[in-house]
Amino acid sequence: MATTSHEHGHNPALQHHFDTPEQQREAATLGMWAFLTTEIMLFGGIFMAYAVYRWAYHEVWALAATHLNTPLAAINTVVLLVSSLTVALGVHAAASGKQRQVVLLLLVTILLGAAFLGIKVTEYSEKFAHCAGYANPITWISGGATLEEAECLVPGQQFHFPVGHGAEEASSLPNIQRNAQLFYLLYFCATGLHAIHMIVGISIMAVLAWMAARGRFSSEYYTPVEIGGLYWHLIDIIWVFLFPLFYLV
């Protein structure tokens, strides 16, 4: 006598506690959406802090933002947006069962993600190089050009926000060092947390690419690609908010 709960034994991707693949897919997707809500609330705390201090110290913060490397960040924004496109195409390819294309598109996504992180590291190390007195990370290692005007935008004992050339009104702002430091602290926290999510995202993409290469997906079953894609889009969207808030405003 076969029990009803085991008659679906033929589909290896279907876990035993689900009745139909459809149910399993919907559950996974809803789970991912719920998780993304959680992520938004997590970053929400940082955005809240941003709003409070932007309001309190808007002049200093506007000034502080000018010392970020906006061109690099702009490139990064483009890189991420393109990666969102490749992920979306990857999901589409998975839906139409084109396995090789899926692998390819996911690998491109990983590359773009890595490029983003590389650029981010460059930005960070530039700030650290300035603290060490060098103009950029390369001269820091090879011992080249030093910085003309002392600047250290990494929060900590050494923090020094330059108020030199012609910015009389800047130096008259109360507690400019302290408040600029707060800006950079939040900058590092927000972009750092985002970078951690990028690393997780890249790992997910790597696993998905590997699974796709092993032929685990088909046009009937590609839920992991789909929800992995959702996660990737979320990371992108968060960056789309971080970029203008820190670099542009």
Binding site: T38, M41, L42, F43, G44, G45
Partner: peptide, 9 residues
């Protein structure tokens, strides 16, 4: 799921 991450951050 909505409140806990705020404590986390």
């Amino acid at each position: 799921i909505l409140a806990t991450p705020v404590l986390g951050i």
